[in-house]
């Protein structure tokens, strides 16, 4: 069921995947906050071989004016893949896929943001994929959330994202490009860890109800791991990597 024929051994008899990971292991995740000077907030993520920059502007005046909402601020997201992000040159014009991903990322971030505090304004989030390696929407969403926190946009919680999927009849965490192409299912999940709410869930493939539940649980575990990296990135940016001790020097 599902998946393309491939010569790659996706999962060997020892439970080791094609890139050497265990089934419950994410790829290497690294995030840096505040990397762009001209944006109000920014972040750079390396998620496996994904390399993505996210920049945030706002809240600011809405142009065109007719898009503004007198009751609340609005969020606009643009997910874009650079022409050099994939092996074959990608046409820089927004593709159907990029438009879809921009939409789902916007809807995944919205529950976390308190835009009702800024009526008649817009927050713009730009995500530029410099190098793609499967799971780029999750990586872009995680970077965007850090960039929003870096910009000081009020938010109820961070949004962290990670995918899970079914490869060689096994539920695995964080599917990579090969597993995505040749595997049986791919499920990106966006999650607010403190509110315990899922803000994004998509499924490409076929799963039984039991597999579906296990897949969600696995993805949420991955999201929690990404959340720790997000927190570290913000701590490095604002507290010089310091912990929770606080200061107490205020007026």
């Amino acid at each position: 069921m599902g998946g393309r024929d491939t010569d790659v051994v996706l999962l060997d008899e020892n439970g080791v995947r094609c890139d050497g990971r265990r089934i419950d292991q994410t790829r290497r995740v690294e995030i840096r906050a505040g990397v762009l000077r001209n944006a109000h907030g920014s972040a750079y993520i390396e998620f496996g071989d994904n390399k993505i920059l996210a920049g945030v502007f706002g809240p600011r005046d809405v142009h065109p004016k007719h898009m503004s909402d007198t009751d609340t601020g609005i969020l606009r997201c643009r997910y874009h893949m650079s022409p050099f992000s994939v092996t074959e040159r990608k046409n820089p014009a927004p593709s159907r896929r990029e438009i879809e991903i921009s939409k789902v990322i916007k809807e995944a971030l919205e529950p976390s943001l308190m835009l009702e505090k800024f009526p008649r304004t817009v927050v713009d989030v730009f995500m530029e994929v410099l190098q793609a390696d499967g799971g780029s929407r999750c990586a872009a969403l995680s970077a965007a959330s850090v960039a929003l926190a870096d910009a000081g946009i009020p938010m109820r919680d961070m949004v962290c994202a990670c995918a899970a999927g079914k490869v060689a009849d096994t539920i695995v965490l964080d599917v990579n490009n090969e597993e995505d192409q040749a595997g049986q299912a791919d499920m990106p999940v966006g999650y607010m860890p403190n509110m315990d709410r899922i803000t994004l869930i998509q499924l490409d493939g076929v799963l039984t109800p039991d597999e579906y539940k296990r897949c969600v649980r696995t993805a949420v575990d991955g999201c929690r791991q990404v959340y720790e990296v997000q927190k570290k990135a913000l701590a490095d940016r604002f507290f010089g990597g310091g912990g929770k001790e606080g200061s107490g020097d205020g007026a």
Binding site: A149, M155, D157, M158, K231, G243, K244, E245, G248, G250
Partner: peptide
């Protein structure tokens, strides 16, 4: 704790 470093959420 009277003061602590916090992040959204």
């Amino acid at each position: 704790a009277r003061h602590q470093n916090v992040m959204p959420g």
